[in-house]
Design a protein around this nucleic acid. Sequence first.
DNA 1: ATTAACAATTAATTTTTATTTATGGTAAAC
DNA 2: GTTTACCATAAATAAAAATTAATTGTTAAT
Lengths: 303, 303
Amino acid sequence: MRYTLHQLNIFSAVARYKNITKAAQSLNMTQPAVSIQLKQLQESLDIPLIEFISNKLTLTEAGEELLEMHKKLIDLTDSYDQFISEMKGGLRGSLKISAASTAKYFLPYYLGKFQKKFPQVKISLKITNRDEVLHHLHMNEYQIGILTQIPQDQSIISEPFLENPLVFACHPEHSLLKKSPITIKDLKDEAFIFREKGSGTRMIMEKILHDSGIKPKIAMELYTNEAVKQAIMADIGVSLISKISMPSELKLGLIACFDTIKLPIQTYWHTLHKKDKVVTSTIRNFLQFIKVGRHTVKNSHFQ
Amino acid sequence: MRYTLHQLNIFSAVARYKNITKAAQSLNMTQPAVSIQLKQLQESLDIPLIEFISNKLTLTEAGEELLEMHKKLIDLTDSYDQFISEMKGGLRGSLKISAASTAKYFLPYYLGKFQKKFPQVKISLKITNRDEVLHHLHMNEYQIGILTQIPQDQSIISEPFLENPLVFACHPEHSLLKKSPITIKDLKDEAFIFREKGSGTRMIMEKILHDSGIKPKIAMELYTNEAVKQAIMADIGVSLISKISMPSELKLGLIACFDTIKLPIQTYWHTLHKKDKVVTSTIRNFLQFIKVGRHTVKNSHFQ
DNA sequence: ATTAACAATTAATTTTTATTTATGGTAAAC
DNA sequence: GTTTACCATAAATAAAAATTAATTGTTAAT
């Protein structure tokens, strides 16, 4: 048999009042109820906790020690209650975000602002590719995903929050730049730089080329957006790429964009989370923040 | 409404197995019982502790934190259980002794030996006079009293453990020393050195003198046995005193004892404790130790 | 010598809480 | 598309806790 928190609570009241009848009153219980619970507590510990010397109730050493233990125990539960109430208010908690790689060009900006507003929230950001993001959500290892290409998955809730213009980019001295505007079909003989399988950008690029009846020649397959930019600058080929990922290169004329009919393709960045996921206040706050934040962010350095 | 240790325990099992049915088995409970308790725990905390993502049970952040809290809580109760079991074995605990002043000449010897045997036991020794010792027991401030003159008090249990020979002592050049042996009546014109009121030695000295029809002349009233010795050496008067408190003085001839008919008076040192007192193993061990210890102590420096 | 204060205990009863049994629903696995 | 594994829920039942009321015993105070 094991004791209960209720018994410890009763014991503490008895220790405080040094009087079972008064302790019972303070607990809104009757005297026999307290006597019985106290007796059972002592029986389950198999040691006396109180004694009556000169008709006065005092604690035994085991009782004193139990009282100490109970105090510490209350401190523990109190601090958990505190944690819970801060979590409920969204002031505390963790925010684990898994984002597709190109998000690295703007997400830190959002997170920095969010962190300032909620300094107690622990934020962690994983930058990876689309497939991994979805895997992370599926495995419940991250709470929020950030993607452009949302999946066909009933169990995932998504919400757009930022424009993501995609353009075909090339070396600034590319011959086709003179002909303007061009159609996508005009690109049929180009060498293409692809992202790796599992990349959202690759998915949409494959779809666009396919829709235009192009069977692309793959010049190179690269695992990061930065590498793609380097390859473009090295004139290895052309690629579909997020415009916001290369503001400096465009300004300095290191990379050029085709002025293409039906381009830029307007895609959107989305927040994603599992339908069954318990949406904490922290998560709710962040989703709200990032959606509203679009406006305040609009004129920032990366637009 | 408040949660119970039982609910925390159930929650921990669920967290461990990530499966309610298996957790129930491990707890020897049925699956619905666990489901219900888990539900109630979450309701009383007003926060979800578990979630099902991709059909797998995982803990929410509040759940993870609760698990941590519960671990600490178990550490607390475990260390209390440890304390209790050491107390039961007498290996640990406190021993608060209040002793009449003359006990200081031999009690540290016992305590030292006891401490060596039970190094974890916290011993505290208060040296005071008889009245205070009894008061300490009455107030339950000390567990054990050490006295020679035991009280007429049904609520106190006493047990003799050591001889305490009392003698009338005087300056080595006292004229009465030539007449030997003397009766107590021969002392009727002496100046007497008394201990303070409340002293056990004073009590018995008053009784002996009264029984011999002597109305003593009080030369001085002193609060410690040491002061009495000093007064005897200064030839201020004679006094009844415990022989074991002045081995060195007797050896060096600084103090002499009358060879008196019916003396030395054989009194005994007693251990005392309140009848209602919970006798811990530590106390029981000490009482046993001090009683048996008499023999091993017999030939020590103070006999 | 009474009385007052306090706690333990008993027995009968009520209230509350915990558990079981039975059933239905929902994914994932075959 | 059937089965399997799991969990939630409802209703019934069992167990535990508390109350009421009465009684005893003890000690301290009057």
